[in-house]
């Protein structure tokens, strides 16, 4: 099976007052059929920009300067996949690509719904825009999906957004994302701003959906425990680049990039002592005046002369384990990981 999404050499620039900024720098990765890929990293690392770039919903000052994004819709019969080069899409075909092929569930679904329209109207609008279901069959499908995300479908269907709680709205948005049966769903911080129980509930819903339905997932989060729970593979993003990418076991049990190790050490665990908890010194780099060499070197305990002058290339630490660091072979031994 070919991957559902192939991203190659993607670069996204923002034009700011202080000059051009590369928010995504030459990023390549695949999302395999049916897998969940988590993008983790601090705020401002470029995770959300990456997601917005795939559906081409970047703010006006942002521009994709290079790269290819290839999306493949394939069914289980093994028939040749329908290939779409996402970045060449314009106008109507781009509109059709969004949500039907790739649905993006945004951060903070609190305001994701038009306050003057009922939930039913949101389903109807979406279906109509893609010439999909209507009338009775739409209502049946909509309510079926609302049931799937564990909502009282009859009540929610007729509700206005303000009549639902934050967690309910987030689940409605997930149900809406499933309406057109897309093969790729991007979840951007789907549990941020929700209390811990609601968060739990949504994670359970997502797990269940993954087991019942057939779609690939890009899960953007700064919460490592959620990523560990949901993802098959994890990519660590730093300063617009994927610095480490491997399966979830390797990333959490045997990380090799100092930044990934630092992120994991910053997460409190139930069994660990609080003295073992360490933060990464400093803050993410200023994208306008990016440091020389490896962008992580000012915060890295292992940085040497080479790190300061030359930016490392991506290397294979193992068959399915990419890392972008000069010191990765040392890192594991020198830096303790408590994960």
């Amino acid at each position: 099976m070919q991957p559902t999404l192939t991203v190659r050499n993607l670069t996204i620039e923002y034009a700011t007052r202080r000059g051009k900024v590369q928010a995504i720098r030459n990023v390549s990765f695949d999302v395999k059929r049916g897998e969940a890929l988590a993008l983790i990293g601090e705020s401002g690392s470029g995770k959300t920009t990456l997601g917005l770039g795939i559906v081409q919903l970047l703010p006006v000052m942002a521009r994709i300067t290079s790269g290819d994004i290839l999306y493949r819709r394939q069914d289980k019969t093994g028939a040749p996949p329908l290939e779409i080069a996402a970045l060449t899409l314009k106008g109507n075909s781009l509109r059709q690509f969004r949500w039907r092929e790739c649905a993006m569930v945004f951060q903070g679904a609190l305001n994701a719904f038009n306050p003057v329209l009922k939930i039913a109207d949101h389903f109807r609008d979406t279906a109509k825009a893609h010439g999909a279901l209507n009338g009775k069959s739409l209502e049946e499908r909509g309510k079926h999906l609302l049931n799937l995300v564990r909502l009282d479908a009859e009540r929610v269907w007729k509700s206005y957004p303000h009549e639902l709680s934050g967690g309910m709205r987030q689940r409605v948005l997930i149900a809406l994302a499933l309406l057109l049966d897309p093969q790729l769903i991007i979840l951007d911080e789907p549990t941020t701003a929700l209390d811990i129980l609601t968060q739990r509930n949504i994670m359970d819903v997502l797990q269940e959906l993954r087991s019942k339905l057939d779609f690939s997932l890009i899960f953007i989060s700064h919460d490592l425990s959620l990523a560990a729970e949901l993802a098959d593979r994890v990519a660590t993003v730093y300063a617009g680049k994927i610095v480490e990418l491997s399966d979830v076991q390797t990333i959490f049990k045997a990380p090799t990039h100092p930044y990934t190790i630092g992120l994991i050490n910053a997460v409190p665990t139930l069994s660990g002592h609080k003295d073992d908890l360490t933060s990464i010194p400093g803050s993410p780099p200023d994208l306008v005046e990016m440091p020389s060499g490896c962008k992580f070197h000012p915060r890295c305990p292992l940085a040497d002369e080479q790190c300061k002058t030359r930016e490392p290339e991506s290397e294979f630490a193992a068959a399915d384990h990419q890392v972008t660091c000069w010191q990765w072979q040392k890192a594991r031994g020198v830096l303790k990981s408590y994960a």
Partner: peptide, 20 residues
């Protein structure tokens, strides 16, 4: 507003987004 961005992500037509 977020719901306008989400409406675009949902692939709604520009006319529908402008009016409703």
């Amino acid at each position: 507003e977020d719901y306008v961005t989400v409406a675009r992500a949902r692939g709604l037509t520009d006319a529908r987004i402008l009016t409703a």
